[in-house]
Design a protein around this nucleic acid. Sequence first.
RNA 1: GGGAGUUUAGCUCAGCUGGUUCAGAGCAUCUGCCUUACAAGCAGAGGGUCACUGGUUCGAACCCAGUAACUCCCACCA
Length: 898
Amino acid sequence: MSISKIYNPRETENKWYTHWLEQKFFRSVPDEREPYTIVIPPPNVTGVLHMGHMLNNTIQDVLVRRARMQGKNACWVPGTDHASIATEAKVVAMLKEKGIDKKDLTRDEFMGYAWEWKEKYGGIILKQLETLGASCDWDRTRFTMEEELSEAVTDTFIHLYKKGWIYRGIRMVNWDPKGKTAVSDEEVIRREINQKLYYIKYYLSPSVGGQAIANLTTSDFLIIATTRPETIMADSAICINPNDERYRHLKGRSVFIPLINRAIPIIEDEYVDIEFGTGCLKVTPAHDLNDYELGVKHNLPVIDIINDDGTLNDKALILIGEDRFAARKKIALLLEEKGHLERVEDYKSQIGFSERTDAAIEPKLSMQWFCKMDEMAKPALEYVLNGEVKLIPEKFTNTYRHWMENVKDWCISRQLWWGQRIPAWYVQGEEPVIARTREEAIEELLIISEARSKMSENEKADFRLRISESIKQDDDVVDTWFSSWLWPISVFNGFKDPDNKDINYYYPTNDLVTAPEILFFWVARMIMAGHEFRGKAPFKNVYLTGIVRDKAGRKMSKSLGNSPDPIDLIEKYGADGVRVGMLLCSPAGNDLMFDESYCEQGRNFANKVWNAFRLVKGWEVDQSLSNSNATAISWFESRFNEALLQIEENFNQYRLSEALMETYKLVWDDFCAWYLEMIKPAYQHPIDHETFTATIGFFEHILKLLHPFMPFITEDLWHDELFGARKDKDCCIVAVYPVSQSFEAVLLKDFSLVKQVVSEIRNIRNSKQISPKQALSLHVKISSDINYKDYTGIISKLANISEFTPVTDTLSGSSSFLVGRDEFFIPLADNIDVDAERERLEKEVDYLKGFLKSVDAKLSNERFVQNAKADIIDNERKKKADAEAKIRILEENLQGYK
RNA sequence: GGGAGUUUAGCUCAGCUGGUUCAGAGCAUCUGCCUUACAAGCAGAGGGUCACUGGUUCGAACCCAGUAACUCCCACCA
């Protein structure tokens, strides 16, 4: 036999993945079986696999593989997301390196480069998923920007527009000056930043009507606190609280903006917090959301001094062309020079940053497209509240509800090129028209025009000609999420062909596995779209994974450099090892503190399975031998079913890491450490046929249980001739997953006592430094009803006992122990420290007496006896009897030492 | 500022409706072993005032109230 002592994953992984592909095991087409469907959360095309994907996709693969083995028609749909901002940023950067500026390109040219880039790098992450063993139906791979999915986006836009749920308007949006696009509220990450609060003097203009105000002595100026001094040039007013006594005298007056000396009015509004800062607020409608609203209310002009790229424009009058942050520093100096800066304080406040580019968000007024959310949020909330969609863990329901009840309209336009272009068409002097194509837009315009005034055929032709020359499509694209919210429907072509076989069969899908961070971005919106377009939520369960953190609890990120490359890990520990490692440290719903040592544990486990196989593989069967392991076999059978029940339960509750741990212990402890040790024939001895067959059967069952977690090693072993000849199609991946059968509880209970006996003997050996090779004799004084005769063989073998003698009296000069009510003695005449032995017994008796006392106290407590349930009381009585019996035994034994 | 969650062994976590022999697992640690499946291993051991303070109860890791620490989400205070 020349099987390697160590499991070598590299050889097997490729081989079996290819085999699975060849056999089309991942392929799913509708049939009569019950479907089990997962759509992948499409990773960004720009992405490379990181630990978050690793976790997320391992979980999906475990679920899919298990479902497949349970006989369901398992379908895992893979794909990628075009990720407009992230991808466009990468393409722009790539072009820049080549010396090309996006500004110098036409839209088409840019898209050419972008597609080229996508073709080149877009497939990487999916290839990487293969190495981890993902059993996706690759024939179904979709991309959110491919033609059909883009059409779905356009159709959806039109549909919602017709419903009046999509509208255009000027709003204060979150502007990303780096990406030069608006981003949604959800894409803004707020961080507390150390800032400076600048106290700036605004001098009052000469008093009203030329009359000096008497009590205005020191103050020819007001002081205003701001974190953004570079925006003072955009100020439209100063606002005070009408109830603020301190500023009563300022009503109706105006001040000059420092440096540029533009006069602005002082207005009053209760919005201003008297307590904060100086109680005076500068109102900058163009650059602050609240100020904007204040401006609308008080009819103030909007002065936008910041360009799309975050530099100051000519309306600023000074510091034109400077970046906003540079301008901030410079203006502080200028103000200081001119004596306008009263003081500067350190100040902490929340600043928004773009999720995609990490640029500080600039509130900016602009014309954008919005999607109304309130109507769609209602049913989407209902699905979760009534349990049709289950969030796992449940705690997210609260957060979900809160969000859905306070949902705001969704800014869906993005000032980018990479994405689905907004299907709005403009002609000078006309309202925008929403249509799929230029032609349809023109027709639409014609109809509108026709409705206004009747046109002759000539006029029509003229009109058509005129508008087809001037008509222009909106330059913007829709938010990426505006395509991914359709994903569970669009991957099955549910928009183009709403009654097709696939969508009818696979939709709604079963489980969605994703990160809680995108519960609102994506999950909530998918539920909305699911309801709107299919009348059904898109999935039944949403498993929200934790965030992968490092050992110190920091989120794994590129910038921290604390994230291992999953592919390196797979190289090092094997895909099965990494999968196990990932799951071992991922309790459902909690973040996981990842550490490489978990992968090591996973690898060791794979190796354990490998070696168990080597052992069995090496046995020679002797047909003439009769079965000498009946007890061990029935014990393991029961134990297996007991564990399987537990595993099923864990899976039902999506406790994957517990399901894995249960399997791990079943294999390592019960199967390897106990069962195999019990039946293992002596060196170079054959095994009987019956035991061998049973063991092979157990092994197969174990491989099946392990398969969803460790697909490669299990498939590899599955095909060994040990298990008989297998056809190409007869694979572990499609083997029938076992279903738990009834088991013998009494046998399991008795056996746990037997294990204790073995452990006690080993313990005595250990403490007395007796070699395992030295056989011992065991004397047993039985008072329980366990039939130890059934177990003498097992005990003898596992504890190296040469003689098993029933006795009726305690045996002095021996090391003794108690298991249950049965007493065991190992004669060790010259190796016994009598004092120590006596002491040990006394200690045990003391402990038992204490224990008995507490039980007695309970039982003599009337209220306990009155209130507690009968079985609890019974149990206490049993404990009492048990303790009393043990004390009697031990005390009897102690006689021998007196 | 509002809300949610967490706090159990050195680490990561179980502990389901309060009640099986003084609270469990895996890893790590310690001790002894290279015993022909596996040192990526075997056998054994140690390790916890269940964050803190009260309360309810015959009985609390579990229920209630408060306190503290941490985490996350939401929010326009310059």
